[in-house]
Computed example of a mutant assay.
Amino acid sequence: MDDCIFDDNEICCGILEEFSDVRLEHLKELEIMCFSYLKHEMEFVKFILARSPKLKKVILYSIIVKDESDISTILSQAPRASPEEIVVRCITF
C-alpha cells in the first residue's frame, strides 16, 4: 500500500466495491508491518474485518505511537464478519 497514491476523497472506495464479494474464510490472524494509521490503511483493515468470519486477532506493527484503546474503539465499531471478540494489539518498533 505504500506505493499507492490515494486521493483523500476517494480512498479505497473502488477497492471496496470491486472486491465486495471476497470472503476470507480461513483468516484467523492479521499482522501488518509498518502500519501508519493513514485513512486508507484503516479502511483496508476494516475491509478485512468485514470479510473474515474466523478472524480473532489483529496485530499492527508501527513506528508511530498511537493509543491502542483508540484504535480498538475504531475497529470495534467497524462491521465485522466474525462473531468473536477481536483482540487488537498495536506494537511500535
Rank of each mutant, 00 (worst) to 15 (best):
M1P: 08
M1I: 04
M1Q: 08
D2W: 09
D2C: 03
D2P: 06
D3L: 05
I5N: 10
F6H: 05
F6D: 10
D7C: 08
D7Y: 10
D8K: 12
D8T: 06
D8P: 09
D8H: 06
N9G: 12
N9Q: 09
E10P: 03
E10M: 11
I11F: 01
I11D: 03
I11L: 09
C12G: 06
C12K: 05
C13Q: 08
L16G: 07
S20M: 12
V22M: 07
R23L: 15
R23M: 14
E25A: 14
H26G: 14
K28Q: 15
K28D: 10
L30C: 06
E31M: 12
E31H: 15
M33C: 10
S36P: 10
Y37V: 02
L38R: 15
L38E: 06
L38I: 13
L38C: 13
K39H: 08
H40A: 02
E41Y: 04
E41G: 04
M42Q: 00
M42A: 02
F44C: 01
V45A: 01
K46Q: 03
K46Y: 01
K46D: 00
K46N: 02
K46C: 00
I48E: 01
I48Y: 00
L49V: 01
A50Y: 10
A50W: 14
R51Q: 11
R51H: 15
R51C: 01
R51P: 07
R51L: 06
S52Y: 07
K54L: 11
K54G: 03
L55K: 04
L55T: 11
K57P: 00
V58R: 02
I59V: 09
I59F: 03
L60D: 06
S62M: 01
V65M: 11
K66I: 03
K66W: 05
D67Q: 11
D67F: 14
E68Y: 08
E68F: 12
D70S: 08
D70N: 14
I74W: 04
S76P: 02
S76A: 02
Q77R: 15
R80K: 15
R80V: 12
A81I: 03
A81P: 04
S82L: 03
P83Y: 08
E84L: 13
E84A: 14
E84M: 13
E84Y: 13
E85P: 03
I86M: 06
I86G: 04
V87E: 13
V88Y: 03
V88P: 02
R89Y: 15
R89C: 12
I91E: 13
I91W: 11
I91F: 11
I91K: 10
F93H: 12
